[in-house]
Amino acid sequence: LNLKQAKEEAIKELVDAGIAEKYIKLIANAKTVEGVWTLKDEILTFTV
């Protein structure tokens, strides 16, 4: 999975969960695949 694909998957998951745009922007700015997954997990843990 490359960075672009990771971001697309994570953003789709966050949108489906009804997460606010400000958190989705954090994913869009992530620099690594690991960073994308870590941010996604943290956002889902603390906002859902």
Rank of each mutant, 00 (worst) to 15 (best):
N29T: 10
T38D: 07
E9V: 14
I27E: 00
T45L: 13
D41R: 12
T32M: 02
E42F: 15
D41P: 01
K31P: 06
L44F: 07
L39R: 03
L14V: 02
T45N: 14
N29V: 07
K31V: 12
A6L: 05
L14D: 00
G35T: 10
E8A: 13
K4A: 13
E42G: 05
V15H: 10
A17I: 07
K31L: 13
K25D: 08
A17C: 07
L26S: 04
I43S: 01
E13R: 05
L14N: 00
L1M: 13
I11S: 04
V33P: 05
L14I: 03
N2C: 09
I43N: 00
L3W: 02
T45R: 15
T32W: 03
K25N: 09
E8G: 05
E42Q: 14
F46S: 09
Y23A: 02
V48E: 09
I11W: 05
E9F: 13
K7Q: 09
N29R: 11
A28M: 15
G35I: 12
I19H: 03
V36S: 01
I19D: 01
I19E: 01
L44G: 02
K7C: 04
A30S: 05
I11R: 06
I27Q: 00
L3P: 01
E34C: 09
V48K: 12
E9Q: 15
D16S: 13
K25G: 06
W37G: 05
T38Y: 13
A30K: 03
G35Q: 15
E13I: 14
G18A: 04
K22L: 08
E34D: 08
K25I: 13
K7A: 04
T47H: 15
L3N: 01
K12W: 05
I43V: 05
K25C: 10
N2E: 14
I27D: 00
V36R: 00
N2A: 15
D41Y: 13
T32D: 06
I19C: 09
L14Q: 00
E8C: 11
L44I: 07
G18Q: 05
A10I: 04
E42L: 15
A30N: 01
D41L: 12
K4S: 09
L1E: 09
L39V: 06
E21Y: 12
E21I: 10
T32V: 02
L1W: 09
A20C: 09
V33Y: 04
A30F: 02
L3M: 03
E8D: 09
K7R: 08
E34P: 05
T47A: 15
I24F: 10
E13D: 07
A20K: 07
E42Y: 15
Y23I: 04
E9G: 06
A28C: 15
G35C: 15
T32C: 03
V33W: 04
K7G: 01
I43F: 07
T47L: 15
A10P: 00
Y23V: 03
E9D: 10
A30Y: 02
F46L: 13
F46E: 06
Y23K: 02
A28G: 07
A6P: 01
L39S: 02
K31E: 11
K12N: 06
V36F: 02
I27T: 00
A20P: 15
F46C: 13
L26Q: 06
T45F: 11
V36E: 00
D16I: 11
K40C: 07
T38I: 14
E21D: 10
E8T: 08
E13C: 13
K7T: 03
F46G: 10
T45P: 04
K7V: 07
E13F: 10
A6V: 08
V33I: 11
K40R: 14
G18F: 04
K22I: 11
L3T: 02
L39P: 00
A17D: 02
I11G: 02
W37V: 07
L14W: 01
D16P: 02
K31W: 07
K7N: 01
G18D: 04
L1N: 10
A20H: 10
L3C: 03
Q5K: 13
E8Y: 10
G18M: 05
K40H: 08
A17T: 04
E42D: 07
A20D: 13
K12V: 04
L44C: 05
Q5C: 07
K12I: 05
L26H: 04
I24V: 07
E9K: 14
E9H: 12
I19N: 01
V36Q: 01
I43D: 00
A6S: 05
F46V: 07
A28Y: 15
K40M: 13
T45D: 07
N2K: 13
L44R: 03
K25W: 10
F46R: 11
D41S: 10
E13V: 09
E42S: 10
A17G: 04
L39K: 04
G35R: 14
E34S: 07
G35K: 11
A28T: 09
T45K: 15
V33F: 05
L1A: 10
I43H: 01
K22C: 13
E21W: 15
L14M: 05
G18K: 06
T47C: 14
D16W: 09
A28L: 14
D41F: 12
W37S: 06
A6Y: 03
L39Q: 04
K25Y: 10
K40P: 00
T47Y: 15
I19W: 04
F46T: 08
F46W: 15
G35A: 15
K40Y: 13
N2I: 12
K12C: 06
V15P: 00
K7L: 06
V33M: 06
E21C: 11
A6E: 03
I43G: 02
N2R: 14
T38P: 01
K22S: 08
L44W: 05
W37D: 05
G18R: 05
T32F: 02
N2Y: 11
K25P: 03
D41C: 13
L14R: 00
A6N: 03
L14E: 00
V33D: 01
I24G: 03
E8L: 12
L14G: 00
L1K: 11
G18H: 05
W37Y: 10
K25M: 13
L3Q: 01
A20Q: 09
E8H: 07
K7D: 00
L39I: 10
W37F: 10
V15M: 14
W37K: 12
Y23L: 06
Y23F: 12
Q5E: 08
K12E: 03
G35S: 13
I24W: 15
A20I: 06
A17M: 12
Y23E: 02
D16T: 11
V15W: 08
Q5F: 08
E21A: 11
K31A: 11
W37C: 06
I27N: 00
K22W: 11
D41M: 15
V48Y: 08
K40W: 06
G35Y: 11
A10Q: 01
E13W: 10
I27G: 00
A20T: 07
A28I: 13
K22P: 07
A28V: 10
D16Q: 14
V48W: 08
W37P: 00
L39E: 01
T45V: 07
G18P: 00
I24N: 02
